[in-house]
Design a protein around this nucleic acid. Sequence first.
DNA 1: TACTCGTGGTC
DNA 2: TGACCAAGAGT
Length: 343
Amino acid sequence: MLTGDLLAWYDRHAREMPWRTGPAARASGEQPDPYRVWLSEVMLQQTTVAAVRDYFLRFTLRWPDVAALASARDEDVMAEWAGLGYYARARNLLKCAREVAARGGFPGSRDGLLTLPGIGPYTASAVAAIAYDEPATVVDGNVERVMSRLFEVETPLPAAKPELVRLAETLTPALRPGDYAQAVMDLGATICTPRSPACGICPWIDPCRARASGTAASLPRKAPKAGKPTREGTVWLLRTPRGWLIERRAAKGLLGGMNGLPGDGWDRPGAPETAPADAPWAFAGEVRHTFTHFHLILRVMTAEAEANPTRGELIPTAEFSPDSLPTVFRKAFDLGLSALSSR
DNA sequence: TACTCGTGGTC
DNA sequence: TGACCAAGAGT
């Protein structure tokens, strides 16, 4: 009884999380709120529980339901998301909230959820299973790893994905599918970890084929990835009596829709490195940052002057929060600010 | 199919 | 220190 063993383990070891409705609460009739489940699952895409927690609390405090989020201003949501990464998620979050609000509520099935922006196979299954008790199969990185070991799948990812999905489908129970989904993910996060899995305390130690043959730690196999190139560029930090020079980035692409510092040479190949204003620029230093697919070395130039910028917008100091910047710009801002302050 | 798209933690 | 890794989706 594979799923039964795992659910029994989950009942004893489930971790507390702000978006979870615990077994005790559910026993007393409380149902998971689809809005909170959806919001948490989007935030958790490729992101650790520890990183998500505070963002989730801030979002739900400020926008308690999907109608509130749908009414929010774009820039407020983007600023609140700043630092969490993968900013297309925030753009799609708003699109999705507005579509759901217009419909009068979330679709009541996995198939319906799949039609919404930012909701793919994983998130649709997770929301359907957790919020609706639909026996949808949830396959994330944890489930891929657990299945590849349980059934000793030697095919490298990502080619193995369809096979792992089929295997996961054979286990999805009709009873407590939401708890089961979270149980497999908890198992992957705490016991069946990528390196040195704790097989000795695993509820699936007996049926696990990779454990039996000693290959657990080497699975799942993965196709080799391409190396990361290094790009270089420049950003300019200007302080004027009218405020900081900030540039809203294009709606799509890298850091799309976010506040940034005017820059050149790194995110728009071939663009000339032209300062955004005529000012007494001084070199403040370099910032290093690594994105998903490239390393970046950014030269930070600073100036304090009354100037008329050719790009961006002057934001009064009192209205600007560095917290609204993606991390790479936050690093550059902090460096530039300390350079300006010590002048 | 293969790329693009962030960030912080870990070993 | 650097590569790997995390509850993926969009194109």
